[in-house]
Design a binder for these strands. Sequence first.
DNA 1: TTGAAAGCGCTAACAC
DNA 2: GTGTTAGCGCTTTCAA
Lengths: 352, 352
Amino acid sequence: MARVRISDVAAAAGVSTSTVSLVLNDRPGSRISEETRVRVREAAAAVGYTPNSIARGLRMQRTRTLGLVSDVIATTPFAGRMLAGAQDAAREHDHLIFLVNTDADPAVERDAIRALVDQQVDAIIYASMWHRVVETPEGLPNRSVFLDCRPAAGGHPAVVPDDLAGGRAAVRELVAAGHRRIAFADAEEVDPPVASGLRRQAYLEVLAEAGITPDPAWHVRGVDTTAVSGRAAAERLLDLPADRRPTAIFCFNDRMAAGVYVAARHRGLEVPADLSVVGYDDQQLVAGELDPPLTTIALPHYEMGRWATEVALRVRAPPVTDQTYLMPCPIIRRDSVSSPPAAAANSSRRRA
Amino acid sequence: MARVRISDVAAAAGVSTSTVSLVLNDRPGSRISEETRVRVREAAAAVGYTPNSIARGLRMQRTRTLGLVSDVIATTPFAGRMLAGAQDAAREHDHLIFLVNTDADPAVERDAIRALVDQQVDAIIYASMWHRVVETPEGLPNRSVFLDCRPAAGGHPAVVPDDLAGGRAAVRELVAAGHRRIAFADAEEVDPPVASGLRRQAYLEVLAEAGITPDPAWHVRGVDTTAVSGRAAAERLLDLPADRRPTAIFCFNDRMAAGVYVAARHRGLEVPADLSVVGYDDQQLVAGELDPPLTTIALPHYEMGRWATEVALRVRAPPVTDQTYLMPCPIIRRDSVSSPPAAAANSSRRRA
DNA sequence: TTGAAAGCGCTAACAC
DNA sequence: GTGTTAGCGCTTTCAA
């Protein structure tokens, strides 16, 4: 069965195609009699007409489609919320999203961007899986926005998580619980993620504002950001002499926090009674299902996805001065933070 | 800057647009002199011409786009592999994918399908997050394929995981390790997932083929399939008298297995020395990061995504007799299975 | 071997 | 108020 075209409804209503177009698109300037309006509408409904978006796109030079190109975003557990935010925003404004994964392959990326441009997408959202600084890909249309990454050269709106503020919230949570010996289980040293530097800065700032001089041994790094690395980092921390041993660990992410749990358990330490832990990411199926559930800082993926899409659709204005917007990361309080054990608190007071 | 059109390269090459089209599309029947061919190609490259897919789509009645509509797939950790498989297949055949999430809202779904049809997508892939039996949505084009779900009414190609074979592999793994008292921590009783019935059937079959008469108390269910439910289910199992207590638990999924770990740990039981555990799903960031890493059955999301796309693209023929294809679920051996503790083995032998 | 012309389905000037 | 016409950018007969 062939699709029904505008000419079919025109014939059915006994009018011209332009009249049909006019009433169906409800152009304000055009004075079509109420009588023909209803006649056309009824005819359209009767024959089951819906406009061909391709034809309309060709004519209007506007397709109401968006391209979302990402490195590996859509194939990781992180991606979901970002896509959901983008989807929701797109749907609210009657747009459809082309999703393309590049697996971080430059050739694939180039082809993808070209294919999207050839499809006449109204805008491209260039997304990353982690907060990164990226080169602006060649061929990227002017009307693009960066999601969870920032173009080194600027020139485009971008949204990234506010890792500095999030890191501060994490460490302040620990300070507020009475901890003085607070460690930071950081990401890898070589080519560390942008978030690493920011969260470390936050860690240092908050300790300083709390009048705590950090023991350099409290800053440890994994070889990556997996649970295995988290566990190894925690081992080193827990090997410290009793009076320098941290009573709380701020972890670069939830996976490392999971590793910290394992290390603690293997030493007979209880979280949070013996060791408080704060993660980062609020990763689905990790943070909430640890035992005990992990207090953490949420990465605002949904909100970032929505923001990027709304800016791409020009329904939200990007920040004017600095084009990159820092999305707040809320703290999610669960059960992995308590006050430090009494002994540690005493020893800490003695040192202070 | 306006896009360069085919007329621009025609002018640059001093030929007509039809000639340009002919050489650029390399139509076999057309005899264009080699000389003009190179002239056209050079001109096209010089002006940076790439064809407008929208115009081409209108003319050819074929857009080289696909719609992928799903309930919540793209927003869950499961989805990634499925999307990756679909993406890879689509890219190999020069197609772009529109991704739409419906959040299982029928109105959203209806609108999405219509929007996709209006976009003249070449096919629609209708995907689910879990193996389900679904009603064929109204308005779904003939050329659609079902992914991780099966239309109750049939009539379309579909691919789902082979949960029966996967379940058998899981339980056989336990039998092969020497277990006789094997429990099944199943999903919820009311409106259980399709996989629940299949895996239970597999459990029963394998016990029977091993000459084991299952204690009915070994089949327990959660109120859902979370870690909390898994833990509760394990508590009940471990509360059984010593001679009926299972030495191994096959879990409906990895999350429940994580809960089983927690229950075991709280009783001072070690996995796998005291209790062997097999999961299902091979869920990223769960199965591999448990302590010890979980032996499980992988859900072949990537392969299913690829299969569905290839069938949608007609580059792979669907099964002719039964239109739904059962994708094998491979076992992933890690460290959560060992032979049963000696005492249990003895008691089991005594019982046998 | 190449060009002219028609037309995919739609919208928007411009007539009437 | 409504219809006629042109044209979005491309492919594909058909003629030359």
